[in-house]
Amino acid sequence: MITFDSVSKIYAPNHIALDDLSFQVDPGEFVFVLGHSGAGKTTLLRLILREIRPTSGKIIVADHDLSLLPDKEIPHLRRQIGSAFQDFKLITDKTAFENIRLAIEILGKPKAEIDQITHSLLEQVGLKDKGSLFPSQLSGGEVQRVTIARALALDPVLLFADEPTGNLDQDTSLQIIKLLNDINENGTTVIMATHDQKLVNKFPHRQIHLEKGKLIKDTKPHHPSKPKDEPRSQEKD
């Protein structure tokens, strides 16, 4: 699904955001990308969305080699990747329903179909009765659910959630991760960037640890129900 091959990203003048990063994510995986602020998690998302280009290295996302992808194909790539952003990126003068609807509208589907999909997404994220509210009228967890619903609107093969639990309490954070887990069980590859080690330890998924742009640890998933899956540690330092 995703291949990073010796990828580095250096912002001018010489701030190294990612340093020789290599990893692979298979279809259907759930991966936590862990790291403190400035570790390179958001840069990872921006590179996957081809919002920025790497300084060096090769990135393949959903069979697209991003260094060879023509600019006109970028919208097509982004429709295959659902993104839930750290700062939500919701339009404040649109309701939750309209924000989700917007993501489906870009495909030019008939209005009735768009509305039906939007209602179903609101129901999936547990906001069935809150579609008419504006982002400012929703709680932090609810806003995050709206961004996840919008990310799912185009039925993506990959969902990247950047710090979706950043400003949420423990219970709400767990609910959000459970929601992402449900989405993953339906076949969507999920990558969740977070700094909260304690939170992700409650889940059995693979963890990629970043520090100052470098991959320092890549652990295999540990399924309690599948004891044969031993945690794999790829200590780099």
Partner: peptide
């Protein structure tokens, strides 16, 4: 600009 940026990120075409 903010709305346009969001549209770009969710995959809206230039024409849209």
């Amino acid at each position: 600009q903010y709305e346009i940026k969001i549209l770009e990120l969710i995959g809206a075409s230039h024409w849209y």
